[in-house]
């Protein structure tokens, strides 16, 4: 959409790459994806990209990161630095949203609702860890579209 937000994707991506194998290994559920079930993010119309990006960053900041504690302090540090990056990106997206350039259509509302249904279908720790393990799905989509 019209809302071009410069994001420190490389920072988030490298933080995630450092913990990806560890976090994904903690997720034994193969037949459900929070972000991609039943339809991939890549199927979403690009006109609704700004809204979904904003809502997804809000989802991660408000719902996911707080439930992602592990017994490993290195992993926890990486998670909190990713969370901080998300906070600053979400702040940028907030500006867009306030300037009404980030309109949410039916499709994005439906997609976001499905994501919440997927999330709430699991216990909160499993759902949060699975969502964290799917960050590459989110980053791949955001980077491809930008």
């Amino acid at each position: 959409g019209p809302c071009r937000v410069s994001m420190s994707m490389a920072e988030i991506r490298s933080g995630f790459n450092a913990i990806k194998a560890n976090i994904q290994a903690r997720d034994p559920i193969r037949n459900l994806s929070i972000l991609s079930y039943p339809h991939s993010l890549h199927k979403v119309k690009s006109s609704e990209r700004c809204c979904i990006t904003h809502q997804l960053f809000t989802f991660y900041v408000d719902k996911v990161f707080k439930h992602c504690r592990t017994e490993d302090s290195y992993i926890n540090r990486k998670i909190s630095s990713i969370a901080n990056s998300f906070l600053s990106v979400r702040r940028n997206l907030e500006l867009c949203h306030e300037q009404n350039k980030c309109v949410c259509g039916q499709e994005s509302l439906g997609k976001l609702k499905q994501i919440l249904v997927n999330y709430e279908g699991l216990n909160v720790t499993s759902a949060a860890m699975k969502s964290l393990g799917e960050l590459d799905i989110l980053l791949d989509w955001v980077e491809k579209e930008s």
Partner: peptide, 8 residues
């Protein structure tokens, strides 16, 4: 093999 999110 399986597709993540489908699981079969």
């Amino acid at each position: 093999y399986s597709v993540y999110g489908v699981g079969k």
